[in-house]
Design a protein around this nucleic acid. Structure first.
Length: 477
DNA sequence: ATGTTC
């Protein structure tokens, strides 16, 4: 039923499955499309197309793979009045995202002290499943975190106000309402602010390996051989609990509002219903928690660098940008020649606004929004910018990473710890991690080729490449 | 992703 309609575009027509309201569309190369066919991800694209109020297409980015309800890499926009909101279109780790920092240091300066630096980073940034941070919040204070996001962290002395304008949505969604977050979710969040987590979350010391757009790279303060830091983490147990709580609410709401579910994991409520608005407010709280989390960790990273390279380095480590991967946003987009407000779900997908978009800070007004694409462990990461093509084709969205080809279990079964460590060692990459299994789960073999994923979004005109970063050292949970 | 089966 799926048909290639353009070089990197595959489509399934309306009517291929009963209940479809729009066609399905996947952005992929031939290799990537075949990988998507192998798991249930394509079927999930079709399932999403049946949700009420979905506009134009059920989309998937080239890092598509199987997820809960929506595929990971899934993007869908819904009519604000007649459409739905669904936790399955956002994910368990609400506002899982990536932040890129740049240091004034070169690879030559960092390499001799890399081992010591990673030891300090590993100690200063708590990681691992269930890890607790150095901050112990009262419920009252946590409520402020949930409603203020990264701004709370800056007001407490974690980083600077200049950091905030370089975060998607300035690190704060204004519709957050802490009273919509359960007691249990809050309990899980009380001791997890400033923690990295586990799985694919990481903190990486990198060097700029190649520059594709000199002018934009220069404007962003990046030059060849310069050391960058990439941080990938989300809303931890708090976001997970918000998702769990509201999936239950949505199952009941789906029944109540007569939403026919082809997959229970797509449980949804009308966006404007009470249930829809409650989740909307709680989801924004979890998103804010994640932005506060990355802001606090940014401060820890600066302090760790200061311990190894001297105090004056601290103020010279700047934020390039911070993007959300798992989130829903109210945005203005063109639909049939008219500007409309729509609810965009990005599930393992990154916002990718072009130059001159009103939501961009003045420093990126002419470059387009920075888009940060982490590769798999030990492979390169990319810095891209958004292009007008993303507004035309993908609701201002693009891919979010390499995307899995193996499940975590499969990766553990097929992987070999010694071989993995040898191959990282050969590349000169140092690793600090508590869990061997986490490293096996994240082995490069378990992921697609990030170069190919980025090639697809570039060829489609969603993004332009600015720079590629290679890892020097990795901290993982 | 996740106090990895409240």
């Amino acid at each position: 039923m799926w048909k290639q309609v353009d070089k990197f575009v595959y489509e399934i027509p309306l009517g291929a499955k009963e209940g479809m309201r729009v066609p399905g569309r996947v952005f992929a190369s031939e290799t990537i499309f075949k990988q998507a066919e192998a798991d249930k991800a394509l079927e999930q694209v079709v399932n999403v197309a049946t949700l009420p109020g979905i506009l134009r297409y059920s989309l998937a980015m080239p890092d598509i793979h199987w997820g809960y309800g929506f595929p990971i890499g899934g993007v869908a926009a819904f009519d604000v009045d007649h459409g739905v909101i669904t936790p399955g279109g956002i994910g368990f780790d609400i506002n899982c995202g990536v932040r890129l920092l740049v240091t004034p240091l070169t690879e030559e300066q960092v390499r001799p002290k890399l081992g010591a630096l990673l030891d300090v980073l590993y100690k200063e940034v708590p990681s691992g499943v269930g890890s607790e941070g150095f901050i112990k919040l009262s419920v009252r204070e946590l409520d402020k975190v949930l409603e203020m996001g990264a701004k709370w962290a800056v007001e407490q002395g974690y980083g600077t106000f200049e950091d905030l304008e370089r975060l998607e949505s300035q690190g704060q969604l204004k519709g957050a309402d802490a009273s919509k977050v359960s007691k249990r979710a809050k309990e899980r969040g009380l001791e997890q602010l400033g923690t990295l987590g586990s799985g694919n979350h990481f903190l990486e010391v990198q060097k700029v390996d190649e520059i594709f757009d000199e002018a934009v790279a220069k404007q962003m303060g990046l030059s060849l051989g310069q050391v960058t830091i990439m941080l990938h983490t989300g809303s931890r147990g708090l976001g997970h609990q918000v998702a769990t709580d509201y999936i239950d609410v949505m199952l009941k709401a789906s029944k109540k509002y007569g939403i026919k579910l082809v997959d229970k994991q797509l449980a949804a409520a009308p966006f404007k219903s009470e249930e829809g608005q409650d989740y909307w407010a709680a989801m924004q709280c979890a998103a804010n928690f994640a932005w506060a989390n990355r802001q606090v960790i940014t401060d820890y990273i600066r302090k760790a660098f200061a311990k190894v390279f001297g105090n004056e380095i601290k103020d010279k480590i700047t934020v390039i940008y911070d993007v959300a991967h798992n989130i829903a946003k109210l945005e203005k987009h063109m639909v049939d020649g008219m500007e409309r407000e729509v609810v965009v779900h990005r599930k393992g997908a990154t916002r990718s606004f072009p130059a001159h978009h009103p939501e961009l800070p003045s420093i990126y007004e002419n470059t387009g929004q920075p888009v940060i694409i982490p590769g798999s462990m030990g492979s390169s990461s990319f810095l891209l910018v958004g292009l007008p093509g993303s507004m035309e084709q993908s609701w201002g969205s693009t891919c979010h990473g390499a995307g899995r080809v193996m499940s975590r279990k499969e990766a553990i079964r097929k992987g070999n710890y010694g071989t993995l460590m040898d191959s990282l060692g050969e590349k000169g990459i140092l690793v600090r991690s508590a869990e061997r299994e986490t490293l096996l789960e994240e082995a490069p073999e378990a992921y697609k080729d990030v170069d190919e994923v980025v090639h697809v979004v570039e060829e489609l005109g969603l993004n332009r490449k600015v720079a590629r970063m290679r890892p020097m050292g990795v901290v993982k949970g």
